[in-house]
């Protein structure tokens, strides 16, 4: 099968049951996307497909063919971080960091969707991303900042 990941063509030979998450991590060498619950509940595996945030654990890799997949590795331009990545750094919006790629992918989409109007709206629209360390306060701060209403 052929996937389009971060603008690159990736050719893989995989079983039909392979999730997009496993295809990225185990076969395409893109380990930035994380596996948490593997059941769609935690959001650690969030990527964008055709510009929309989805959970890659519940997406079959074969069904992502012909679509544009963007992972955390595809956000920065060279050494220039995406503004959301920079905001997470600035706000120390993590502790262990395991959920962070998913949080950032979700947050980038949230801003594009126009859901950064208030802290309450940010929290509700980040409900698909769990942080076991409880870095939520700084995550909200980073998103508010990156959305340009700091």
């Amino acid at each position: 099968m052929v996937l389009q990941v971060n603008g690159q063509r990736v050719s893989l030979s995989l079983e039909p049951r392979t999730s997009l998450l496993d295809a990225l991590r185990e076969y395409a060498g893109l380990t930035g996307t994380k596996k948490g619950c593997d059941r769609g509940s935690c959001g650690a595996c969030t990527v964008h497909i055709d510009g929309r945030r989805v959970v890659s654990c519940l997406t079959l890799a074969a069904r992502a063919q012909g679509k544009a997949v963007t992972t955390i590795e595809g956000l920065a331009s060279g050494d220039d971080l995406h503004p959301m990545q920079a905001a997470f750094l600035h706000h120390d919006a993590y502790q262990c960091g395991y959920c962070t790629p998913g949080q950032i992918m979700s947050a980038v989409a949230l801003v594009q969707e126009g859901h950064a109007g208030s802290d309450a709206e940010i929290r509700e629209n980040m409900s698909g991303n769990i942080c076991r360390c409880g870095a939520y306060a700084n995550i909200v701060g980073a998103i508010r900042d990156a959305a340009g209403r700091a």
Binding site: V54, V55, G128
Partner: peptide, 9 residues
């Protein structure tokens, strides 16, 4: 219902 990611799917 669900989460934004799941509602997109």
């Amino acid at each position: 219902s669900a989460s934004p990611q799941i509602r997109n799917m």
